[in-house]
């Protein structure tokens, strides 16, 4: 198990603070692992080009 980097911890704590959330120390590793996973998925999405006219999906209208 690798040590958590202080700069990564600082980023997570700052993100949490921005929504009035505090990440208890016991949760840090799990939250950071999950954040890394979500970031990898977000990167996939980021690389897919979407037209400006492609709006967010709202109610489902088949």
């Amino acid at each position: 198990m690798t040590d958590l980097k202080p700069e990564d911890i600082a980023i997570i704590q700052a993100r949490a603070a921005s929504i009035n959330l505090e990440i208890p120390p016991d949760f840090l590793r799990g939250v950071m692992d999950n954040t890394a996973l979500l970031t990898s998925f977000a990167d996939l999405l980021e690389h897919y080009p979407l037209a400006d006219t492609c709006e967010a999906a709202g109610d489902y209208i088949p």
Partner: peptide
């Protein structure tokens, strides 16, 4: 809890 906490912090852009 770890997954919900990480999810809660996802940016609106994502």
């Amino acid at each position: 809890s770890d997954r919900l906490l990480a999810g809660a912090m996802l940016p609106a852009d994502t």
